[in-house]
Amino acid sequence: MLLILLGVLIMHLIILILLIVSTAASTWSVGGDTSTDLWYSCMTSNGGYHCKPASSEDWIQAVQALMILSLLFCFFSLIAFVFQLFKLVKGGRFFFTAIFQILASVFVMCAAIIYTVMSPNDGATQFGYAYVLAWVAFPLTLISGLIYIVLRKKE
C-alpha cells in the first residue's frame, strides 16, 4: 500500500511540474524568429531578443486563466490528498482530491483546445513544447483523478 501511495504522490508531483512548465514556458508556438507563449511574444532580430506582451484578445486571456486554474486545482488537490491521507477514516475514498484533480484536467484540456482553435496559423508557425506538455498533462491529470476515485485508505 505504501508503494501505491508513493507512486500516486510522485505522479501527482510530475503532473504539477508539467503544468508549471507548460504555463510558464515561452514556446507555445514557434516560427522562424518568433516564439510565443501565453504571456509574451518574443522575436529575434538584429542579434537581439525583443519581447512584447501577448495580445489582449479574449481567447488568450481565457487560455491564461484556464492554465492558472488548472495549476491551482492540481496544487489544491495535492494538499487535499496529503490532508486526507492523515485525516480520512479507514476505508474512505479520496473523492475530494479526485474532484480537484479532474477539474484541473478539464481546465488544461479546455485551455489547450482554445489555443489550438484560436491561435493564428500562418503556415510558418508550429506548436512548441509547452503546448505539447499541456496536452501530455491532460490525460495524466485525468488518470490521476480517476485513480484517486478508486483509491481507498487501507485499515
Rank of each mutant, 00 (worst) to 15 (best):
F76K: 01
F76G: 02
S77R: 08
S77P: 11
L78Q: 03
L78S: 06
L78M: 10
L78N: 01
F81W: 14
V82K: 04
F83M: 13
Q84V: 04
L85H: 01
F86M: 06
F86R: 05
F86D: 07
K87R: 08
K87S: 11
K87I: 01
K87D: 07
K87L: 06
L88R: 06
L88T: 00
L88H: 03
V89C: 02
K90V: 06
G92D: 05
G92N: 12
G92R: 13
G92I: 07
R93V: 04
R93D: 00
R93T: 07
F95S: 01
F95Y: 11
F95A: 00
F96M: 07
F96P: 04
F96Q: 02
F96G: 11
T97P: 12
T97R: 13
T97N: 09
A98P: 15
A98Y: 13
I99E: 05
I99K: 10
F100E: 08
F100H: 09
F100C: 14
Q101N: 13
Q101P: 09
I102P: 13
I102C: 11
L103E: 04
A104Q: 05
A104Y: 02
A104W: 02
S105N: 01
S105Q: 01
V106G: 00
F107V: 01
F107C: 12
F107K: 03
F107N: 03
V108M: 02
V108L: 00
V108W: 00
M109K: 03
M109N: 01
M109G: 04
C110E: 06
C110Q: 05
C110R: 04
A112D: 00
I113W: 04
I113H: 00
I113M: 05
I114K: 08
I114H: 03
I114V: 06
Y115D: 07
Y115E: 08
Y115M: 11
T116L: 14
T116Y: 14
T116G: 11
T116P: 02
V117Y: 07
V117K: 13
M118C: 12
M118G: 01
M118E: 12
S119M: 15
P120F: 07
P120Q: 12
N121F: 07
N121V: 11
D122I: 10
D122Q: 05
D122F: 11
A124N: 15
T125Y: 14
T125W: 14
Q126F: 15
F127C: 11
F127R: 15
G128K: 14
G128D: 13
Y129Q: 12
Y129M: 12
A130M: 08
A130W: 01
V132R: 07
V132F: 09
L133D: 02
L133E: 00
L133M: 13
L133R: 03
A134I: 03
A134N: 08
A134K: 09
A134T: 05
A134S: 15
V136N: 02
V136K: 10
V136Y: 04
A137N: 02
A137T: 02
F138R: 04
F138K: 06
F138D: 00
P139G: 08
P139C: 10
P139D: 05
P139S: 09
L140R: 09
L140Y: 07
L140G: 14
L140E: 00
L140S: 03
T141L: 01
T141N: 05
L142W: 06
S144A: 13
G145M: 13
L146G: 10
L146P: 12
